[in-house]
């Protein structure tokens, strides 16, 4: 196996996530796209962990990222819920009160 096949797959997932986070209007969908990006980063970590034989830290950090991603989803969904309660929709385009 070539290292790059994992890295490029991870890159693809990351960029798909970027696209999704930028175009999706629904807050939940944006969070899903962010999950894509986080998982891409995880794949990267694990691939490098397998590449450098003695290094196990990549896997440890992937675990940390999973934990942090879980926290992120919890808080993120709470924010989307609050958004929905205040604007009666989860549409991010309507949350533009920071307009300059």
């Amino acid at each position: 196996m070539v290292l790059n096949q994992f890295l490029l797959l991870s890159l693809f997932l990351f960029c798909t996530g970027v696209y999704g986070a930028l175009v999706r209007r629904n807050g939940v969908l944006v969070l899903m796209s962010i999950e894509l990006m986080l998982n891409a980063a995880n794949l990267n970590l694990v691939a490098f962990s397998a590449f450098y034989k003695t290094e196990i830290s990549g896997q440890v950090f992937a675990l940390f990222v999973i934990a942090i991603a879980a926290a992120e989803v919890g808080v993120g969904l709470a924010i989307v819920l609050l958004l929905y309660r205040n604007l009666s929709s989860a549409d991010l385009d309507r949350a533009d009160s920071m307009k300059g």
Partner: peptide
């Protein structure tokens, strides 16, 4: 996480 997402979808009446 996926279950959480489905809850989010339902709670925001998407």
């Amino acid at each position: 996480v996926l279950v959480l997402f489905l809850f989010g979808i339902m709670l925001t009446k998407a």
